[in-house]
Simulated scan of single mutants.
Amino acid sequence: MMKKCLSFLACGLIGAIALAEPAWAGPARLIINGGAVSIRRAGWSQFSRAGNGTQLGGTDLIRPAAGANASLRCPNGGSRRVSGGSVVSVNNLCGGRSGSIRSGDVLKRLQLPDSIGGDDVSIPYIIAPRSGLLFNANPRFQWNPVADATRYTITLVCEEGCDALEPEAIWRGESETPQLTYPEDAPALQADAFYHLEVIADTGQSSTDAATEDVSFLVLPLEDSVTISEDAELPPELLVFDQATLLLENEYYADAIALLQDQITQTPTPALYQKLAELYLATGLRLLGEQAYAEAIALAGPDDSAEYADLEVWLASHYGLAQLYAEVNETEAAIAQLQAAEKVAALFCANLWLNGIQKKLSQWGTSSDSDATASCSA
Rank of each mutant, 00 (worst) to 15 (best):
C74P: 06
G356I: 10
P183I: 11
G34P: 07
Q55C: 11
A341H: 08
V37L: 07
A191V: 14
L281V: 01
A256V: 02
I257H: 03
G99L: 09
A68F: 11
G12P: 07
E174P: 07
S79H: 08
S38A: 13
M1V: 15
C158Q: 10
D114N: 07
T155N: 02
E327W: 02
A66T: 15
A20D: 03
S83Q: 14
E160K: 12
V82T: 14
S48G: 08
I62C: 01
T373K: 00
D371Q: 07
N92K: 11
A16C: 14
Y308K: 06
A292F: 08
N33W: 09
A137G: 13
A334I: 03
E174D: 01
Q55S: 11
L299Y: 08
R172F: 06
A211F: 13
L9H: 15
N136R: 14
D255V: 07
A42T: 12
Q323I: 13
P22R: 10
G118T: 01
A298H: 06
N136L: 12
A169T: 09
A147I: 06
E290K: 07
Q190G: 13
D231R: 12
L354V: 10
I228A: 02
G132V: 02
A36Y: 05
G58H: 05
A254C: 08
T54R: 04
L56S: 03
R41N: 10
C376L: 10
G12H: 14
D304R: 09
W364E: 14
G43C: 02
R130D: 01
I127N: 02
G320W: 00
Q55K: 10
L321R: 09
L61S: 09
D304T: 05
T155E: 09
A191L: 13
L276I: 05
A316Q: 05
P113N: 03
L156R: 01
L218E: 05
A10K: 14
R73P: 01
N138K: 15
A345L: 07
T150H: 09
L189T: 11
S71W: 08
I39R: 03
L9Y: 15
D119K: 08
Q179P: 04
T203Q: 10
A294I: 00
L338A: 07
A333Q: 08
D304C: 06
Y182H: 09
L311K: 00
Y308W: 12
R286M: 11
T181N: 10
L361D: 03
S225E: 15
D120C: 09
Q337D: 10
I127E: 10
S216N: 03
L156D: 05
Y195Q: 08
P129Q: 03
F217Y: 08
A210Q: 13
A232D: 12
S48H: 11
A271K: 00
N91V: 13
I123S: 00
R29C: 05
N351M: 13
A66L: 15
G53Y: 01
D119L: 04
I101C: 01
D148G: 02
K275I: 04
S207F: 06
I62W: 03
L189N: 10
S103L: 04
V106E: 03
N69M: 14
N355I: 12
S368T: 12
Q358I: 14
A137K: 15
E327A: 11
L246W: 06
D231Q: 10
Y125P: 01
C376M: 12
W364T: 13
S89G: 15
S175I: 06
L239T: 11
S115Q: 12
Y252P: 04
Q111L: 08
A271F: 02
P113C: 04
F47Y: 14
